[in-house]
Computed example of a mutant assay.
Amino acid sequence: MSGICGFVGAPASGIDMEGTLQAMLKSIGHRGPDGRHVYVSREDGFGLGHNYLRAFSPNSHGDSAGFAKTGSFAVAIDGAIIRHANASEAAAASVFADLSDQESRTALTAYQHSGSRWLSELDGPFCLALWDGEKKQLHLSRDKLGEKSLYYLFDRSRNLLVFASEIKALLRYPGLQAELDFESLSIYLAFGYIPGPRTLFKNIFKILPGEHLQFDLAQGLQLSKYWNLPPIVDAVDDEAFSIRRLRELFLQGLEGYVNGCQDVAVFLSGGIDSSIIVAALKELGVPRIHSFTIGFNLADSRVQKLDDLKYARLVAEKFATQHHELEIAAGHNPWPRLMAVVRQFDDLIMTPNSYSKYLLAEAVREAGLNSVLTGSAAAGACGVHRKFLD
């Protein structure tokens, strides 16, 4: 995880562009303590910021992964672009072939060689901001399933676009204020989440999964979809082939994400999703798998039914992970951490396990690891919740 932010259309005078970017990046400093990058084009009123977190990814070395400035282009990436569908054909001819940052090189090469298809040819969990200084165009996008977040505010009266990985960074831009959207609040209280592109605030929107925002200083803002979820069928002609293909794609994606990493952390509940991740990491030959589980040492039988410790231990023993357990006991005091948890929710969603995940994330960091794999939202990504497709 990294953090990106920026703006285009800023007035030529009256704003400290570098200072504004630094303030925006500071507000999301938790997303990237391992590097910070700022680029400004005063002529275009454009600024781009990037916080970098060194994590398990194909590009986990160096302090500039996910950021590049070359020629008239600048790009910042949160996440991992695992591959470009036509990378082998395009790489040799690319003017970006000498860029040391793999993900920036991949994104810019796709942009240069693939025309309007460039985003659809990128795989992996990512969001990106790409500035084409020659065309005076900004491109913002999220990955196909929306694993990474990206928000924006467009002020038509000033022809100003501000964007960031989190809403709190948007509000660091001078003169912008958050105004509660009561209709969004009503939706949240009814359904437990706020469907995109809405957020809890007026005039602040989220870019949807598989969506591309193009902002042109002359023509303004355009939104388009570069990818849509294909139809989900209830039956397949060859079940055995489908199972093999799913397994192949799952291992391929996971291998691309943790390629070369010696230590990988996993939130392990002992359920299907997280257990499959652990098994796959073992098959891929990851030397040290660190599993993290939380349970409850409470007398209440209703809470005991939610305890994951027993099942997680079985999986950890089966695959010989370096297993870490946390227990919430009767005397546990949540208040010192509770406001820190709440502060992370720029976009409200009713997730009753958010506090326990925060505790697990602390344990991961204390173990010296920066990133963690989880099985969260796997059912949604696999199309299990059919009601959301209707």
Rank of each mutant, 00 (worst) to 15 (best):
T199S: 14
K206R: 15
Y193L: 12
D155R: 06
Q219I: 03
S291T: 15
Y226S: 11
A190K: 14
F250Q: 10
I277F: 00
E239G: 00
P195C: 10
L171I: 07
G192N: 14
G260Y: 09
D155K: 13
K202E: 15
P209G: 08
G270N: 07
L213R: 00
F250P: 02
V162Q: 06
L213V: 02
L189F: 13
I277Y: 02
S165V: 05
G271M: 09
G270R: 04
F267G: 00
V258M: 02
E239R: 09
E255M: 02
I167Y: 00
G285H: 00
R172K: 13
D181A: 13
N159A: 14
V278A: 08
R244C: 07
N203K: 14
L249K: 13
E179F: 13
I243C: 00
R247P: 05
F267S: 07
A190W: 00
F191V: 08
E179T: 12
E166Q: 05
F215G: 04
Y193I: 11
Q214G: 02
G192F: 08
G271R: 02
S186N: 07
E255Q: 11
K282W: 01
R172A: 08
R172V: 00
F292E: 00
L223I: 07
A169H: 00
V233G: 03
A280V: 03
K282F: 06
H212C: 10
D155E: 15
A178F: 05
V162M: 09
A164T: 06
Y226T: 05
F201R: 14
A218I: 09
P174G: 01
L185G: 02
L223V: 04
R288A: 10
P197C: 07
I207A: 12
Q252K: 14
I243H: 04
A235I: 11
L251D: 04
E255L: 11
E283Q: 11
A280S: 13
N259P: 00
L284V: 06
Q262V: 14
L160H: 04
Q177R: 04
E211G: 11
I277C: 01
L161V: 08
Y173D: 02
S186L: 11
A164C: 05
S184H: 04
L185F: 12
L284R: 03
W227V: 10
P209I: 10
A265H: 04
R172I: 02
R172M: 12
I207R: 03
G256S: 15
T293F: 09
L189Q: 12
F191D: 12
A178W: 08
F191E: 13
E255T: 03
I207E: 03
P197W: 10
L180M: 12
F182T: 15
I204H: 03
A235W: 11
L170T: 08
L180S: 10
L268R: 14
L251N: 02
L268E: 08
A235N: 09
T293P: 09
R245W: 11
R247L: 13
K225A: 14
I272T: 09
W227T: 13
C261L: 05
H212L: 07
N203H: 14
E239N: 00
E255F: 03
L268W: 07
A218V: 13
S165Y: 01
L217Y: 00
L268G: 07
G220L: 09
F205L: 14
L170A: 06
F182A: 15
I289W: 04
F182W: 13
I232K: 09
